[in-house]
Design a protein around this nucleic acid. Structure first.
Length: 190
DNA sequence: GGGGGGATTCGG
DNA sequence: CGAATCCCCCCG
């Protein structure tokens, strides 16, 4: 989707931890069979149908959380999955959280280089589903927010574009070029 | 009420 | 490459 790459280089903040967004994927609604919203509104995906600028967090594989930024107007499901961050602050708390599941050999690039990893590093779970990312009460007490610190959106050779990861290839939209990343950043997944 | 599958991760 | 591990949702 058009706004998805605009999230690149914005800063996602959760309490003392923050990171620069270096990889995203766009998901749509009724026209995207890979989207959780494809079959309409359910209790789980309700936030996707709400106003933009809110966080949609889901639980998957019995153990991982993934987070999205809702990007469509109310009533139109649209979300951008945050797939990777370049850690900026709170590295110690990130390491502490990530070591619970990955006790040994944890490098900085292992903290936030995947959608499940970054939620674990930031401490995000279903309790953050629906959080308003743009309410300017700047996080100091466990709040979550999205910040534009002026870093330019990657363009030209710095903007990577590809198909979305982890989808069944049978899905009609699986090969759409809806994954965007900061080319060359070591935190980009896979 | 049952069952299949999942926007993942890690270790072997 | 397979297990872990549980929630969600469609279908009967």
């Amino acid at each position: 989707m058009d706004v998805a790459p605009l999230l690149l280089n914005k800063v996602l903040v959760a309490g003392a931890a923050s990171g620069r967004i270096v990889e995203v994927e766009a998901y749509r609604g009724a026209d995207d069979p890979a989207s959780h919203a494809f079959r309409g509104l359910t209790p789980r995906n309700a936030v996707m149908f709400g106003p933009p600028g809110h966080l949609y967090v889901y639980f998957t594989y019995g153990m991982h959380h993934c987070c999205n930024v809702v990007c469509g107007p109310p009533g139109v499901a649209s979300a951008v999955l945050i797939r990777a961050l370049a850690p900026m602050s709170g590295l110690e708390v990130m390491r502490r959280r990530r070591r619970r599941r990955r006790p040994a050999g944890l490098r900085d690039r292992d903290l936030c280089s995947g959608p499940g990893k970054l939620c674990e590093a930031l401490g995000l779970d279903r309790s953050h589903d629906g959080a308003d990312l743009l309410s300017c009460s700047f996080p100091g007490s466990g709040g979550v927010g999205l910040v534009d610190d002026g870093a330019p959106v990657p363009s030209g050779a710095d903007l990577g574009i590809g198909h979305r990861i982890g989808l069944s290839s049978a899905l009609a939209t699986a090969s759409e070029p809806w994954r965007f990343f900061a080319r060359g950043d070591p935190n980009v997944s896979r």
